[in-house]
Design a protein around this nucleic acid. Sequence first.
DNA 1: TTGCTCCTCACGTCACGTGAGGTGGC
DNA 2: TTGCTCCTCACGTCACGTGAGGTGGC
Lengths: 240, 240
Amino acid sequence: LTTHSWKIGDLAKRTHLSVRTLHYYEEVGLLRPSARTEAGHRLYTEDDVVRLQRILSLRQLGFTLEDIRRCLDQDDYALAPLIDLQLERLREQIALQQGLYQRLSRLRARLHDGENVPVTQFIETMEAMMQIEQYLTPEQIATLEAAHGEHREANVAAFKAFVDQLRTHQQAGREPGDPAVQAMLAQRRALVADTTLDDPALAQGLQRMISTEPEIRQRFGLDDALLAYLSEAVAIGGSC
Amino acid sequence: LTTHSWKIGDLAKRTHLSVRTLHYYEEVGLLRPSARTEAGHRLYTEDDVVRLQRILSLRQLGFTLEDIRRCLDQDDYALAPLIDLQLERLREQIALQQGLYQRLSRLRARLHDGENVPVTQFIETMEAMMQIEQYLTPEQIATLEAAHGEHREANVAAFKAFVDQLRTHQQAGREPGDPAVQAMLAQRRALVADTTLDDPALAQGLQRMISTEPEIRQRFGLDDALLAYLSEAVAIGGSC
DNA sequence: TTGCTCCTCACGTCACGTGAGGTGGC
DNA sequence: TTGCTCCTCACGTCACGTGAGGTGGC
């Protein structure tokens, strides 16, 4: 029956903790060595080591030191509520971080390695992305990204050209029912199908966004009057 | 041209920040109000508000205030490496938290709502689980859980009974090739198939664990000599 | 005597929260 | 005069890291 005892350095090596950490655990009343030498050096008994192992096990589960202390000082501590809380926190954290990861990935994909995009422009892109997230599901956004591929700018330019042409008709005083205007609806359908990969829910989400966010309309030169003109043309044409 | 300016409380309400946060942002040189009243009250101009919006945008991406300051004070700041670092950190974090979540969930499932499992026993279960993780993939563990279902204890008891019976033969001096011992191999195959849902890789992982971890053998009363005895019987029987 | 380990303060971390005690403008 | 907002310290958070300055045992 050899009851061994460890000095703080030995214990630190065995557990891969720092000496400071063991000091701290004593400070907060989590692990008090059972004895000291005459010179004041800490001596940890086997019981202390067992307790430390338990501390580390519970720490692995993400509990705070305070929770761990309570658990160990009372063996019939009700663990279930504690675990449920921790699970809830984790769910939230993971969801948050995954959302963040998706957003950052998409932003990163637009940063071509060579050129240095100005920070201000980067932030604008990000704000646009976050606005989009209000209207589309993650899956729909992925579809949109897939549809855009490398020719995002070409698509944007095509839509702008469409708006410009529409404005010409409007300024020429033509009615929304005018054959020249109605002829543009096929072009519009093609544009929408192209950018949404024929996903009607996605198209609807985009339309909802465009009609409720004036800033986005402005980006394409689509003022309120012109939007109304377009809506009327579509209503007359009968294509959704 | 009305250049408006805001006092700190107005800005706090608009952005849903606390006054203290705005104080802090000034303290660390992140957002300095362009003016003060005679009495020393902070006055934020429209430019300041724009800067604050940018700060909040970047904060959303999980950057530190220090990184944000650097980005905003230098418009051609190289964002790509910063984002890559952040993505890496996030990947690690998410992986860690998901592992933690899986472990906690499985532990929670074993805590039946009514009874209070003692903390020490809970920790033992957890340590056993972490040992298992060394030998099996997450998918294999899931299979194991599915196979166990509600009758985990019955399975464990069945395996213990098997070991006990085997020991009887050993203590009676029968050779591993003895018909009575060989007759037990079919029982063993059934047990293995039952707990692994006929997954051979899973069975192999479990066997590797049992043969390398003496503590686990001990839990079933399977000492080294008896393990050797069983191995020999299996070798003679020719079933893997 | 020289290393190595041990000791006890005590400040720093990161992004603020939370008072304490006092002043300014309606 | 009474509220409300504003101000400047300054300590607390969580789990330690990182010295500073000194002692003990081989």
